[in-house]
Write a protein that binds this DNA or RNA. Structure first.
Length: 591
RNA sequence: CGGGGCGUAGCGCAGCCUGGCUAGCGCGCCUGCCUUGGGAGCAGGAGGUCGUGGGUUCGAAUCCCGCCGCCCCGACCA
């Protein structure tokens, strides 16, 4: 491709609206343009990157035995009512009505459609297992699109659905997708961490997220620096630690009730009573399967609803309204406490370790000071009930864990029979019994990989694409367009690299060298080859990798072969890395 | 949805507070000269419903009200 014939509208200045590095650089490099909030056009070279991601995803999904199909984005709303997600998806579901008043949703994901296909077409265990996938535009009415192409209302997702006859088959399908995802991100050349994610009622290790570490990431991941434990904040368990509850001092005075007029939040109460937030505790009331229950969490901690739900063995956990809370506890929200509480109570471990604590008095405008856990309220049910934070002990090895931000680029999930039961997707087993098919779902955010690659690969001058995702592998920059020797050398090199299967961009613009160098760095082409009068006079051509600080000269006479050799070395290096990781993964599974 | 900010040429901005001549500047774009290894220089030029609707006024980019859009923080994100 000749730059003069391409559409690469690079920008010298950063558009004011862009804040995230990936957003700024993709705009400046002429890869994307914004149409509206959460809606972006991919300009030619941005689209080339997107397409490279799609290609890698497709190859690895095919290699994993998944079957590609294409389902409609336009879906009858009845399907969503059938699965029950018309309610649970809520406002996030993009809806529209046709002129004849038919009600549709624009698919945010395709469990329903895919299950519908399978309930019609799969009748026998002999047809299982099967994994179907598609690469398609999804729609979500995001309340707040942000960070350029990182969170948009319309985005491209690879979504796959596995259908299995039993748990063993499900586990095999899941493992195959997990492995395929590792291959995909390895081949894309982006850094990633695999973390345990909240898995819903199935529990266990049935959900993993693939995260690209980045300060612009919207997800928080908790990692152990010592062992391999990693989980997102919603999921992360907290180790029991070695600390034990202090013995109760028999001489300790009874707790004291204090007036705290209109102080409702932890912040207000602690300010008023001049105590640290970590010396207070908050009582939160939930409805576990409809019944009121309470948890006591340290003032500076956050309750984790999944942990609370499991603590009470409930399948659903909701937040009650203010009136229900008052009826259950006898006090308005803001003054709740564990002393003389009438509903079931679970206490977070960190509260149980406190020698004394400030809590609500279960009476309006009253808090209690000097309340002693185990004396003034029971410690029958002490559990891990809160979100993990940096410094908490690892559940595996006890080491202090750290917190990092990440961009979720992939998610694998064992669904079980949620959709197959709701929608009647059954098959007959070898004994003639009708059984609900067991499902898994697996998503990859294609646009997000592009954004994450830029977040992970850029410097002050612009984007640094991994070779596998770059819109062009090589940029050839002839500096003197009127010099026939320069142009001939550029064309010869272009032809030979293209013949070897590389994508080549020739900057044939009549621009000063500085302009070409700045643009080359900005759009992030991995290998830059400069051909100039000066160099040719010395018999050399200049080669510079985007990742290197400096260029090196090679002999013009053997430039084609030498450049091809450098490209091959880099490409093979990435392949070797990917296969080494694959080997180490299968080795660690064998353990 | 709550809080904050912004909307003037393709991009970045000034002008607005304190209303008044033809709405400016830099980058980019077009023409010419010149220059050619890290976003050159000179000269000439094109390009604007000042987001939008209303109001106040002799007069509105500027003041007032409504609406729309965009960005950031938060809430939300099976």
């Amino acid at each position: 491709m000749r730059w003069s014939k391409a559409l690469i509208p690079t920008l010298k200045e950063t558009p004011a609206d862009a804040v995230a590095p990936s957003h700024q650089l993709l705009l400046r490099a002429g890869m994307v343009r914004q149409l509206g909030a959460g809606a972006y056009s991919y300009l030619p070279i941005g689209f080339r990157v997107l397409h490279k991601v799609v290609q890698i995803v497709r190859e690895e999904m095919d290699a994993a035995g998944a079957l590609e199909l294409l389902m409609p984005a336009l879906q009858p709303i009845e399907l969503w009512k059938e699965s029950g997600r018309y309610e649970t998806f809520g406002d996030l579901l993009m809806q529209l009505k046709t002129s004849s008043a038919q009600h549709f949703a624009l698919g945010p994901t395709h469990e329903e459609v895919c299950t519908d296909i399978v309930r019609d077409l799969i009748r026998s265990y002999k047809q299982l297992p099967v994994t179907l996938y598609q690469i398609q535009t999804k729609f979500r009415d995001e309340p707040r699109p942000r960070f350029g192409i990182l969170r948009t209302r319309e985005f491209i997702m690879k979504d796959a659905y596995s259908f299995d006859a039993d748990i063993e088959q499900l586990n095999a399908s899941y493992d195959a997708m997990y492995e395929a995802y590792c291959r995909i991100f390895d081949r894309c050349g982006i850094p990633y961490a695999i973390v345990e994610a909240e898995s819903g009622p199935i529990g266990g290790d049935s959900s993993h997220e693939f995260m690209v570490p980045s300060s612009t990431g919207e997800d928080t991941i908790i990692q152990c620096p010592a062992c391999s434990y990693a989980a997102n904040k919603e999921r992360a368990e907290i180790g029991a630690g070695t600390a034990t509850a202090p013995p109760i001092d028999p001489a300790a005075p009874a707790f004291e009730a204090v007036e705290t007029p209109n102080r409702r939040t932890i912040e207000e109460v602690c300010d008023f009573l001049k105590v640290e937030k970590a010396s207070s505790a908050k009582l939160l009331v939930f409805l576990a399967d409809g019944k009121p229950v309470a948890v006591l969490i340290r003032g500076d901690h956050e309750a984790n609803e999944a942990k609370v739900r499991r603590a009470f063995g409930a399948s659903s956990l909701t937040q009650p309204d203010a009136a229900t809370v008052e009826k259950a506890t006898g006090a308005p929200i803001g003054f709740l406490g564990p002393v003389d509480l009438k509903i079931p109570l679970a206490v977070d471990r960190s509260v149980a370790l406190m020698p004394s604590v400030v809590v609500g008095g279960n009476k309006i405008d009253v808090h209690l000071k000097g309340v002693i856990p185990g004396r003034d309220f029971a410690l029958d049910k002490v559990l891990d009930l809160r979100d993990a934070v940096a410094g908490d002990p690892c559940p595996r090895c006890g080491e202090k864990m750290v917190e990092n931000q990440g961009i979720e680029v992939g998610h694998v999930f064992k669904l079980g029979t949620k959709y197959s039961k709701a929608m009647g997707a059954h098959f007959l087993d070898d004994k003639g019994h009708e059984i609900a098919v067991i499902m898994g779902c697996y998503g990859i955010g294609v646009n997000r990989i592009v954004a994450a690659a830029v977040e992970a690969g850029h410097d002050a001058n612009g984007i640094i694409w991994p070779l596998a995702l770059a819109p062009y592998h090589v940029l050839i920059a002839p500096l003197q367009l009127t010099n026939p020797a320069v142009m001939e050398a550029a064309e010869t090199l272009e032809t030979s690299l293209q013949a070897a299967g590389y994508d080549v961009l020739v900057d044939d613009r009549d621009q000063r060298p500085g302009v070409k160098f700045k643009d080359a760095d900005l759009i992030g082409i991995p290998l830059r080859v400069v051909i100039s009068e000066r160099g040719l006079k010395d018999g050399t051509i200049e080669v510079k990798w985007r990742t290197d600080a400096t260029a090196h000269n090679i002999s013009a006479a053997t430039a084609n072969e030498a450049i091809l050799a450098e490209l091959e070395t880099t490409r093979k290096g990435m392949e070797t890395l990917a296969s080494e990781r694959k080997i180490s993964r299968s080795a660690s599974r064998g353990k």
